[in-house]
Simulated assay, not measured.
Amino acid sequence: MLDDSRLSPREQQIAKSYAAGCNYQEIAANLHIAPSTVRTHLATIYRKLEVSSKVDLANRLNGQGPVPQDQVDHAAIISELALSLEEALSREKALSEVLRIIGASRGDLGLVMPAILRHALDLCDAEFGILFEYRGKKQFQASFTLGIPAAFQRWLDESGIFSASDQTGLGRMVASRTTVNIMDVKSEAIYRTDDPLRFATADLGGARSFVAIPMLAADQLVGAFTVYRQSVRPFSEDSLRLAEIFAAQSVIALENARLMSDSGHPQ
């Protein structure tokens, strides 16, 4: 077996979980840390063990020696490139899986939407997500949620269809029909008012960084795809692009369900 002295106890936990097939989100949930922290640890693990893939990591944990490297001085670059490649492959796999589920779902949104949210949270390093359906006149209803704190979920259930004021992320998204990326929901002036949605988001949900993506079908707003982080970690451009892709897949799923319903086809 590997000489564990090179890794801290936390690094050993993360290395073993990742090599066993767990993703960032699963490891983060088990260890009560942020997914981005998992990635930081993995970059360190890759450098310490001189590995460049998940397979190499598993082999090193099983006692095999390091693969000879011609450019050991570039270990940091190698580890970063290796993780970036694995993340790109994970994105491709997730998107393919979502498309497969949509194609096989026969309009069953209860099957599709949780899968979309699960992959979005994993790839965007977010703690929870909500798919809101738009009811017109700045009114929304939370139709699907994943990972949401119980207090926030109760608020949404009790509120049913609710109005989003102009200053909220959802309200601004309705007006602009573009993605709204909020660095810290507690730093905005609306948090210091009695706005019920912002209170529920920040205090009941514990959200800090937040993004709301319009779901558009033929230029008509049909919903909002939202993901939340419970620490102040603004969403990068790469994360936004990923979330927008999942929002687009959600629109496809909603439209498929509508077409199935209109045709009288059993779901």
Rank of each mutant, 00 (worst) to 15 (best):
V38F: 06
R192D: 12
A218Y: 13
S52P: 05
M113Y: 05
A58Y: 06
F152W: 05
E50H: 12
G206F: 08
E244R: 04
H119A: 10
T178W: 05
L216S: 02
Q220K: 11
I130Q: 00
L49K: 00
P266V: 11
V222L: 09
P196W: 03
L89D: 12
M183P: 11
V180D: 03
A76W: 08
E26S: 03
F132D: 02
L204C: 10
R258G: 07
Q139R: 15
E80I: 09
G206D: 04
G129D: 05
F162N: 00
F132P: 02
Y228Q: 13
E87W: 04
G129V: 08
D195K: 11
D56R: 09
S163F: 13
L240V: 05
L42C: 06
S96W: 13
A212L: 01
Q249Y: 13
S236D: 11
D195T: 12
Q267Y: 13
L89T: 13
L117S: 01
V227N: 01
I190E: 09
A20V: 05
A253E: 01
I161M: 05
E244K: 04
L121D: 01
S143Y: 09
I27V: 00
R118C: 08
P234F: 14
Q12D: 13
G21E: 06
P234Y: 14
G169C: 08
T193P: 05
V38I: 08
H74N: 15
G103K: 07
L99A: 15
A29H: 05
H32C: 10
G21D: 07
L2P: 06
G110H: 06
L221N: 03
R258D: 06
D4A: 15
Q230G: 08
M173W: 04
L81E: 07
S159E: 10
I213V: 14
N181Y: 05
A88F: 11
R106P: 04
D108Q: 08
M260F: 11
I14S: 00
R100Q: 14
G136F: 03
A120F: 07
E86K: 03
F152I: 02
K16D: 11
T145P: 10
G103F: 11
R10S: 12
L254R: 07
D3L: 14
A175G: 09
L216M: 09
K54S: 06
K186A: 11
N59F: 14
A247C: 04
I245W: 12
A34N: 09
E188L: 13
L170N: 03
A217C: 15
V222D: 03
L254E: 04
T168G: 02
N181M: 05
D195C: 11
G147L: 01
E26N: 02
H74F: 15
N59Q: 15
S90K: 14
N181D: 05
K93P: 14
A142K: 00
L61F: 10
C22N: 11
G129P: 07
R208E: 08
V185N: 02
C124V: 03
G103P: 08
G129Q: 04
S239L: 07
A207V: 04
P68W: 01
F152G: 04
L170Q: 03
D262C: 13
A243W: 02
R6Y: 11
T178H: 10
L216D: 03
L156K: 08
D70E: 09
A189Y: 13
G107V: 00
H119D: 08
